[in-house]
Nucleic acid binder design. Structure first.
Lengths: 226, 226
DNA sequence: GTATGATTCATACGACCGTATGAATTCAAA
DNA sequence: TTTGAATTCATACGGTCGTATGAATCATAC
């Protein structure tokens, strides 16, 4: 009888602490993206989040635990979204190989949309991801391996089917390059443009269309004879 | 009479100190590339270089001075090489716009060759450069602005002439993307490949040919109507 | 109201950081 | 062999790091 009342009250009661945890995650994500994992101390984070030093220990255990939580929060949804989009593309294609552009859009759209959605932190996490690819931080490496590698494998397989004339190594190489390029280009979104150039600013749909066209052309580039 | 002896002795005598400075630079470059600027302490560096803590203060002043020296050593030559190659391409073309592939090769070849030349540190500095593009370290930013931005401007102008149908913003965007992709792809050179795939290994000329073909196709991708 | 569990807080610890300093050492030149 | 500059070395300083701990506070359940 009181189970209903209890859960209701509990939910309200847990709101404040949950807010602290979320606030710390938001601030940590932003600071990590701005300055890098090693350059940001947990003292910087708790100061900006107006929380207490012990909160990190309490909610995340260690700094590495916090880092992992920051990544998981964003990576899990976007990974699922990518895989779901790829499945939809393949289902729609039936037993024929899907269109190259459709596969590329499935993998690129989620992160672009996230990067352009202020409600999901905007470009902040995109900056962090850009770092992921080049930073050898062991925690980040582990997160990448557990969350990102499965997606890469799945999409590599799909792309190899679409582009049967490319070797698996070449598909892997091109995807890797484009993924790095994507994050690199996303960084332009909040970077001051060089003098003489207007600020780079387009909406998500335009960006996705441009990037997919760019990537598809690159993917179809014939391998020069070695 | 003793001038010969003097120079001989001088060369031998100065060898040790010059070697210390260079040894520190080599080790710092490697450690910075492996772990990141902030994660490496100058104590890590002098320990690996078998030097004394004071050597950093003596030769470079501060850690930032060391970082700057690490970048300058490689960036100055490669920048010069790029500009020289571009000039050669433009001179060869006379008053006609040069070929897109030639311009792209001029900017990409120097870093690929460096990344594949063990005598110039191999991929080590390439890893460091990959970080440059995403890392907001203020020292790195300053180095980039003073050494890299001029090259970008120069090549952007050249590419705009070659691809007059693309807007300057689009040229900038595509170059930025490809530059990030280049460094991203170079990282594969010393990364363990995912299970099932052979180690990515080609010689410099093949790599350059592939990358230029890839980049040219991407550059020629028509802008989709927005 | 009071007991209880969840959360926040102030504070402390040892380790490591970047930098500075001055003495010791090295070594070409006289 | 002495001189003087260049380089190396041992050592110290104040500051910040990540982590841990135990008391204080809070909101709920009885």
């Amino acid at each position: 009888m009181n189970s209903k009342k209890r859960t209701a009250i509990t939910a309200q009661a847990k709101k404040a602490p949950a807010e602290t945890r979320e606030r710390v995650l938001d601030v940590a994500e932003r600071l990590f993206a701005e300055r890098g994992l090693d350059a940001v101390s947990i003292r910087d984070i708790i100061a900006a989040a107006e929380a207490n030093l012990g909160a990190i220990n309490y909610h995340f255990g260690t700094k590495d635990g916090l880092i992992e939580a920051v990544f998981e929060r964003r990576l899990v949804p976007s990974t699922q979204e990518r895989l779901r989009a790829l499945e939809a593309v393949e289902r729609a294609a039936g037993d024929r190989p899907p269109k190259l552009e459709a596969v590329l859009e499935a993998i690129f759209r989620p992160v672009v949309e996230e990067a352009m959605d202020p409600k999901r932190g905007g470009i902040t996490f995109g900056k962090l991801m850009a770092r992921c690819f080049v930073d050898p931080n062991p925690v980040m490496e582990r997160v990448m391996r557990s969350h990102f590698t499965p997606v890469v494998k799945r999409f590599d397989a799909a792309l190899s089917r679409v582009m049967p004339n490319l070797s698996p190594e070449d598909v892997f190489w091109r995807m890797h390059l484009l993924m790095g390029g994507l994050h690199q280009s996303l960084l332009l979104l909040d970077r001051k443009p060089p003098p003489g150039l207007p600020r780079f600013q387009v909406d998500a749909e335009t960006y996705i269309r441009r990037f997919v066209a760019f990537a598809a052309a690159a993917f179809r580039a014939p391998l020069p004879k070695d």
